[in-house]
């Protein structure tokens, strides 16, 4: 498959054109992933492999050298380091909020002021996560402030 990347003028909308003979299932899946800017995350659940839509993930958290993935209610251990997840999901809705957590901005209900110049992210499932002062500037940048 040939991939062509073209420069566009500032302000012009980014566009991906797919030129193909047939829209097969693989291509449709790729288009869906491009549209949602998400991928699948593979976790093991009692020796079973499960694929999780990245859009369903609320946050990742590192606890005692282990990294966990949090859905609305379920929690899975993942075999990646936080920095690897950060790289995998760069330029998506995922945001490094502290040394130990990466949150999905699409799942944040609201931000609230916290002790000592920090913020707290209140997630849509009711959980609360701290946003360290070090990452507040990056958060503002990400949200276009």
């Amino acid at each position: 498959m040939k991939i062509t990347i073209q420069d566009i003028a500032p302000g012009e909308e980014e566009e991906i054109i797919v030129r193909c003979r047939d829209l097969d299932e693989a291509l449709l899946r790729m288009i869906h992933e491009l549209k949602t800017r998400r991928g699948k995350f593979t976790v093991t659940d009692n020796d079973k492999i499960r694929q999780i839509d990245a859009g369903d993930i609320y946050y990742f958290e590192a606890v005692d050298n282990k990294v966990f993935l949090y859905l609305e209610q379920d929690v899975y251990e993942v075999r990646y380091k936080l920095y690897e997840i950060e790289e995998m999901y760069a330029n998506t809705d995922f945001f490094r909020a502290s040394k130990s957590a990466i949150i999905n901005l699409a799942k944040v209900k609201q931000f609230a002021p916290d002790f000592g110049g920090r913020f707290e992210a209140q997630m849509m499932n009711g959980e609360r996560l701290m946003i360290s002062r070090q990452y507040v500037t990056a958060l503002k940048k990400r949200l276009g402030m």
Binding site: K35, T36, R37, D93, L105, A106, V108, Q110, F111, A112, P113, F119, L139, K140, R142, L143, G144, M145
Partner: peptide, 22 residues
């Protein structure tokens, strides 16, 4: 607190834009 209100305003815009894009 005012800073967090601005963040929330921008978060709503960000989420709306994300939804629109999808």
């Amino acid at each position: 607190k005012r800073e967090s209100e601005n963040l929330n305003r921008k978060l709503s815009e960000y989420q709306a834009e994300s939804e629109r894009r999808m």
